[in-house]
Amino acid sequence: MLSLALLILTAAGVVLPILAAAVAASRGASEPAVPVPTPLGAAIPLSALGLTWRRLRDVRTGRGPRVLWLGEGDSTRYSRAFRLAKAPLYDAGYSWGTVERSGGAVQPVCWEDPAQGDAVAVDAIAAAEASLAEDDRRLALEEQRRRQAEALDAELNGDARRGDLEALRQSLRLKAWAWSKRKREVAEALLREPDGANGAPKAATAKLARDLVAEVEAAIEAVRVRVAKDPARDWLARAEDPDVRMAVHYAVKLLTDMDRDMASLDNGVGWGRSHTHAGHVLASLPELSVIEATNALAAVWRHRKQLRPEVRARVFGSEQA
């Protein structure tokens, strides 16, 4: 019944004015202009710029009557088109606004001016699509150039970057004691990074690998410098004996092998917290200088009870040390 009533009202909206004009003419009155009802279809393209346009209502504005349309769907393409061809779209009534319970969110809208006719909206959409196509060509060309540049860069620098990643692997393997948990996690994530062009590591990945290795080496060197600047004088004379230096180096390595937890547990095994970093650094050296052996003797003395009597005898001159 409701549909039938709407049909009758719609027909009346068209037929009655015509009948009224005919009656007026038969009575000798001047014929009034017959109003044409606003179509339920569209003067704007109903599907344009990735959106579906839905007619909301007729609005009387300070610039005259307008028909308000709402663009529904993913507005990504519309946003890009509006940036590239704002002038023609804006002239045709396209813009952004808050309507229909949007919660304040800005949505694509069109304030259609019925007096402009269909051509304005159609031409604006055509201009926007042309701008999008041109921008697509530009982006494709930029991507092509970027890939070519990456390929050339990988050819020129790929071996050096592979070397940076290999140096990182070696440092993690051979100097694990010098890597903090945070640095280790970053390094392991880097080693899982997919390669770039031509199977070469990406430039950013290689640079970060170099930086991490450099930081770890700097930390190791800082310990060596600190050890060299603070010799324990009580052990200096003994450290001048080459056999003692070899013996204490061996003792340092034994304690370091036991120090798997890097003194994180108070278990009396391996180095204590005050010596763990220096102990690992000294153990990693190919040999000890007199100053380094002096500090090694002082550190081992604090942990000598973990060593076998014969090792203590070689290091300190007595099994009862």
Rank of each mutant, 00 (worst) to 15 (best):
A206G: 09
I220A: 11
L70A: 10
T52A: 08
T76G: 07
V225A: 10
V186L: 13
W69H: 01
N295T: 13
V99R: 15
G117V: 01
R83I: 09
A176C: 03
S75A: 15
R161S: 00
R77W: 07
V186D: 08
A178M: 06
E292D: 05
Q306T: 04
I8Q: 09
L68S: 14
Y250R: 12
G279K: 03
N198P: 04
L254W: 08
V34L: 07
I18H: 08
D257I: 08
Y250P: 12
L56D: 05
S79W: 13
Y94W: 15
T10Q: 04
L4G: 03
A29C: 10
L70I: 12
A219M: 03
R146K: 15
D91T: 06
A133T: 12
D153I: 09
A119N: 07
A293G: 10
I291A: 14
V269P: 07
S318R: 11
K181Q: 08
E188G: 14
A232C: 13
R80H: 05
W301Y: 09
Q144K: 15
T10P: 02
V14T: 01
D241C: 13
W271Q: 01
L46R: 12
A87Q: 11
I220S: 12
R54S: 08
L51R: 10
M246C: 14
E240N: 13
P37D: 08
I125P: 01
M1Y: 11
R314C: 08
V109Y: 10
L2H: 05
D195E: 05
R314E: 07
L174S: 03
H280T: 06
L174G: 11
P242V: 06
G73S: 09
D74K: 05
V36F: 13
G104M: 09
A298Y: 01
P45C: 06
L255I: 04
A251Y: 06
A206I: 05
R233K: 14
R302G: 14
E134A: 13
